[in-house]
Design a protein around this nucleic acid. Structure first.
Lengths: 221, 221
DNA sequence: TAGATTGTTAATCGATTAACAATC
DNA sequence: TAGATTGTTAATCGATTAACAATC
């Protein structure tokens, strides 16, 4: 049962989380510079742009299994495809979004999200004024239809943008509907079975770091 | 010139970034359980809730300078105030938000943000249909008035929620207006002078991690 | 060939975890 | 007092950076 995995990832290892988080940043940059330098880019060039160490770039890219040419660098087109493939962007990553508030609408508006592998195919809410309307070409449906649809369409990714006070309940309902991976943008620490993949985007966390830096800096000068 | 710093932070050290990011999560939890256990909580209790090691909680809290009682734990009210004070939430952290799209609106709607020390006092946009309207009690002003207002009100924090294609230009304008700290929610890697504090909230990064986990998991079973 | 860059292995650095003493 | 928890110091773990060999 490990065979499939080995075949698929024969040239790639599981990268550490900091590396995974840098990869989409690389992608955005590579797509912008793809026509430069005959379509090649070197690790030192990228490093100069991001302010990283060249070695870090080389190591990060090595996780994807891509091969570079000494003295030349990496073929940008190949690099983009390899990274995208490594992260799984080319698989069918269809997702449901739950909670069509402002943040949910922001994500629905955010075309770039599709460039990062995720395709939102339906949105859900409890608000009757939103239900059965269409927002950015995506149908907004009543949340109690989610279970049936998730099973029928085989959707396994849920994007959680509900108010904090219902986040846990909705998350549990998602899991019951067969959702196995949740991108959680609420401020709630979800308690779910271990086999559910939960990825948190905690905006507060960054605010705290910012304020601390602001606070300390003001004493430094 | 280091005196002030020493006086202010006599009982506290600068915490590493992972610790700083956990602190707002602690705050949310503490505010919820403040009336439990006679208002006391122990590190092992918190650890059990978050799935962390008790030692990590103890160490994290120690950075704030708070004192706990062996066999009892920490006074929750005191703990909350100490963390908030350590992070600088009690200072006047007034901010301008630039870019009143859906994401900007989400942040303006997000009362919780004030509980994390940041107070948005004005918003800016270029869209004439938005300018001079009020959203969630906050005035939306033309972006070219930002510089004058920032100087007059002494605002030093900018929240960047513009479209990606203008992010760099707007960020530079913010810096020129005296803004010294930017919370960047766009997908653009900003190039700014070193003395400007930039905190990135890169939602893509988390999506990439999620997809990779989803992808790998599906081969494991 | 010379030299820049990849790719890998070793060293460093920093954060987490473990161990243990101090304390109420 | 006994025992749980704080608080600190040491050990471990993992990621970044440095060193260097391989390669085009």
């Amino acid at each position: 049962m490990d065979n499939k995995k080995n075949i698929k990832h024969i040239n790639s290892k599981l990268a550490p989380e900091p590396t995974l988080k840098r990869m989409p940043v690389y992608l955005l940059y590579l797509k912008k510079v793809i026509s430069n330098n005959n379509g090649y880019i070197s690790a030192p060039q990228m490093a100069a742009h991001f302010g990283y160490e060249p070695t870090q770039i080389v190591k990060d890219l090595a996780y994807t299994g891509v091969k570079g040419k000494p003295r030349v660098g990496y073929n940008i087109g190949e690099l983009i495809l390899t990274i995208e493939n490594y992260l799984g962007f080319n698989n069918s990553n269809e997702a449901f979004l739950v909670g069509v508030g402002k943040l949910g609408q922001a994500l629905l508006s955010y075309h770039e999200l599709q460039g990062f592998g995720v395709k939102i195919i339906a949105a859900f809410d409890v608000d009757k004024t939103k239900i059965d309307t269409v927002y950015k070409h995506i149908n907004i449906l009543p949340v109690d239809k989610l279970g049936e649809l998730a099973k029928r369409l085989g959707v396994s990714i849920g994007i959680l943008t509900t108010p904090a006070n219902v986040a846990q309940v909705v998350a549990e309902a998602l899991v019951k509907s067969g959702i196995t991976a949740i991108w959680n943008l609420t401020s709630v620490k979800l308690k779910l079975p271990n086999n559910v993949i939960v990825q948190e985007t905690m905006m507060y966390a960054d605010v705290a770091v910012l304020l601390k830096k602001v606070n300390d800096n003001c004493f430094n000068k």
